[in-house]
Amino acid sequence: MGVQASVNAQFIKPAQNRQRDWLPYMLALPIIIYEGIFILIPIIQQFGSSFTSDIIGFGAAKGVGLANYERMLNDKFFWNSLRVTLGFMAATVIVAVGAGVLAAVLMNQRFRGRSIARAVMTLPWAFPDLPTVLVFYWILNPSFGIANVFIRFFMPWLTENPKWLLDINLAMPLVVAIASWKAFPFYGLVTLSVMQSIPQELYEAAKVDGANTRQAFRYITLPALLPIIMLSGILACIFAFRQFVLIFLATGGGPGRVTETLVISLYKTAFRSFDFSYGATIGVSGFVVVFVITLLFVYLQHRQEAEAAR
């Protein structure tokens, strides 16, 4: 079929050169306009307003040049939010992708009840954000939460319940755990679909050559999974970077800003302190981060496609 298609393409090509085919452009145009209005124009506005001073209740916006950027670079809370973001990203990528890959390896084994186990492991992915926060909030309630029962069982020497999301040392690990709980099934599903596409003959050939299970995993499964693990890692970075709801509703960035990521800090600057232009400036710094990650993503994709084509 592939050969047929390419023959067709060659056959039609000369006609195409004479007259440009306008249909795809007509089809794409509405989408380009749509995304232009709702995405590109706001991005440009964001850049524009980062050079102004626009605080609600302080009159019209006026140009201030680079003052916002100067303020940002000297703002220890900005640097804190960048640190928190990177920490959150690194931790969720490792935990969520790691747990996802482990889940995929488990689910790829043959055992009784596998289909049920698979369905159960997919649940958090389909579970919406709001109820996720709701139930973890309740589980981690310092007075009534079931988490207290568990922690007292494993650490009987505790004299009082932990403050959980209100504890300055526990807040970040807990937010990472909640975000990973929600995210890992996705990476598990992705990895599993790749694992199932590895030809069974490879394993049989390895067995004939005398490889044990561990060696088969090390030399067949792992190399096949490495590209998708890396891609998952980058996707996880992006998803962690844009994570707003879980963190905002679980801790609000607190206690003492230990979970205040860049997007939380931006939101609070704009909608709590009503400093729109400074919020926009933080947003611009966010574009830089996203742009770098996206470039990395495109680069990896291309490399993998090139490898796949070889």
Binding site: I39, P42, I43, Q45, Q46, F244, L266, A270, G283
Partner: peptide, 15 residues
């Protein structure tokens, strides 16, 4: 697809 919603919530809100 990659763009975090939070990065453009301010200009969209203002407009």
């Amino acid at each position: 697809q990659m763009l975090p919603e939070a990065l453009i919530v301010i200009p969209l809100y203002a407009t």
